[in-house]
Design a protein around this nucleic acid. Structure first.
Length: 518
RNA sequence: GCCAGGGUAGCUCAGCGGUAGAGCAGGGGACUCAUAAGCCCUUGGUCGGGAGUUCGAUUCUCCCCCCUGGCACCA
């Protein structure tokens, strides 16, 4: 059973500020937003954290190419992300930008603490280095002929000193953690098959993790507190955002009560960053800091949107721009599509046609039109005033509201949307079955007509709550037209809250149809 | 090479031992409160291929093929 008084903490991966946001970034945030909004409807306190990863070599290089300071460069990209989240109605409670002083202090404190407690060591290792690209090359970068390709320019073998995190010594503990939490009430990894994938990778784990770069190569990062000649590289910087922005203080003996009320979190991440960063590095880092097994987060791993069956990539030139889609179709159409057309954890194919179809069929034709016809009939036949009566649909609607709640609790928005849609479909059928326009012509059937109008209005009121996590703005607009001003909540999905004599407002088409290109 | 997910109607998917289902799209019809929406009816599939277990397989087992991901290896 969920502890409703306890804060529900949920985070997304933070996005790298080396390029504009694409549809995958948007999906992750919309998914997390829907989950967060559902918990708020339940009355549970929520801490929803998202943000941007602003440091690192690629940013440094991109800025250099444009003749900009790294900070100016990342500020520009960060603004694009923030503008998109605002447009899409992402309701995060906190914003993690890794150039923030609070983050830098926390990361340095963590590094110092782990250095002091012997989790790091300094070592000199050699490798093939591309002078042009300013990076070490891995074996993967070799071509079929065993040589590094011309795109790398001159490649030299050099040795470099760096700091390493003793990762390998956490291997057995991690295997045990995966095993003990798999199939438990609080799984470490969702969906379950991803846990198997993680376990597989952990079993083969060998070697430690390089966590630094000498300043001769990289200056755009957080300085190692015990060696000003180095900055920390990627992992301790980016992954730490989940706790640094939740108030974690790594100082020995610090008061962690606030942090502990916000931890552990559910991390919503893409399948590409489960192994190794979140599933291995992050968990080992937390353990090294002294986090207990029951303080390890849950990793909710979502799939990818492919484009016509192909992976989305810059080289294929098939990047889908969420800002342009939100501009053209509206945030609601985009959010609805992203939540309805993919099962959490799986991949799906992105299709504008399906976005248009789902919007027209479900939002415009089914829900929007139901609202419109209900308000119109009530106004025409009863001056907009409802008479409270019993309803043959009360049980059905309650059942669907329960299914919606269960689906959201298990992070399945597409299933929750389906449950909500069934209410609209059932109501539309109810209109046809009862034919209010015929009842209205017969004084003897007045009670039946009142019953139908109340059933439809009350169903719509409940439906507006069920839609809140997905399309909050339109859900609120529905309530406004129903003249129902109470705060939406799961508790208010109870049947029969519209009082006798309730006056509905004016009907205004809520979801104008998208005119499809012939 | 190893592990995992997927391959079911034009599209998106559900089913997972008893002679194939939903939504959308397509076709037909009745209605009129409504955003030319909604409702009813309907066309449509040798359930990736092959073998096996079974009275019976989309559903279980084995082999193979294709797509996706992870890990490893070669170079």
């Amino acid at each position: 059973m969920t502890d409703m008084a306890r804060t529900f903490s949920i985070t997304t991966a933070i996005d790298y500020t080396n390029g504009a946001p694409h549809i995958g970034h948007a999906y992750e945030k919309v998914l997390t937003d829907a989950i967060a909004r559902h918990r708020r409807l339940r009355g549970q306190p929520v801490f929803f954290l998202t943000g941007v990863d602003q440091h690192g070599q690629k940013v440094q290089q991109s800025a250099q190419k444009l003749g900009l300071e790294p900070k100016a460069f990342v500020d520009g990209i960060t603004a694009q992300f923030l503008a998109l989240w605002s447009k899409l109605g992402i309701s995060h409670d906190a914003w993690a930008a890794t150039t923030e002083p609070v983050h830098i202090r926390c990361v340095q404190g963590m590094l110092q603490r782990l250095w002091d407690s012997g989790h790091f060591y300094k070592d000199k290792r050699g490798g093939h280095y591309s002078v042009r690209q300013e990076q070490f090359l891995t074996e993967k970068e070799r071509g079929p002929d065993g040589e590094f390709g011309p795109e790398w320019g001159e490649v030299v073998y050099i040795e470099e000193e760096n700091y390493y995190f003793k990762l390998a010594e956490h291997r057995d503990w991690l295997l045990g953690l995966i095993d003990s939490r798999s199939k438990s009430a609080h799984p470490l990894v969702i969906p379950e098959f991803r846990a198997a994938e993680l376990r597989n990778a952990v079993e083969k784990l060998s070697g430690d993790l390089c966590i630094s770069r000498p300043k001769s190569r990289l200056t755009w990062g957080i300085e190692m507190p015990f060696d000003p000649g180095f900055v920390t590289y990627v992992w301790f910087d980016a992954l730490s955002n989940y706790i640094s922005f939740a108030g974690y203080d790594p100082s020995p003996g610090a008061d962690l009560s606030t942090f502990q009320s916000l931890w552990p979190a559910v991390h919503v991440i893409g399948k590409d960053i489960l192994v190794p960063p979140h599933g291995i590095y992050w968990l080992a880092m937390l353990r090294a800091l002294g986090f207990a097994d029951n303080e390890m987060p849950t990793l909710l791993v979502h799939g990818w949107w492919n484009i016509a069956g192909a992976k989305m990539s810059k080289s294929l030139g098939n990047i889908v721009d969420p800002a342009a889609l939100a501009e053209k179709y509206g945030p609601a159409a985009l959010r609805w599509y992203l939540l309805a057309d993919i099962a959490t954890g799986r991949d799906a194919d992105f299709s504008i046609e399906r976005l248009e179809q789902r919007y027209n069929a479900e939002l415009a034709n089914n829900i929007g039109n139901l609202l419109n016809r209900t308000l119109n009939m009530t106004r025409r036949y009863r001056g907009g005033t409802l008479k409270k009566c019993g309803s043959p649909l009360a049980g059905f609607v309650s059942e669907k509201a329960k299914a919606w709640d269960a689906a959201m609790e298990s992070y399945q928005p597409h299933a929750a949307i389906e449950a909500a849609m069934e209410i609209a479909v059932r109501c539309n059928a109810h209109v046809e079955e009862t034919a209010p326009w015929k009842l209205a012509k017969d004084e003897a059937q007045a009670a039946q007509l009142d019953g139908v109008l109340y059933t439809l209005s009350e169903s719509l009121r409940i439906l507006s709550i069920l839609l809140e996590p997905f399309i909050p703005e339109q859900a609120a607009a529905m309530r406004a037209q129903l003249n129902w001003t109470a705060e939406p909540s799961t508790a208010a999905t109870e049947w029969g809250l519209l009082p006798d004599g309730h006056q509905l407002s004016e009907p205004v088409p809520l979801f104008p149809r998208i005119e499809l290109q012939p």
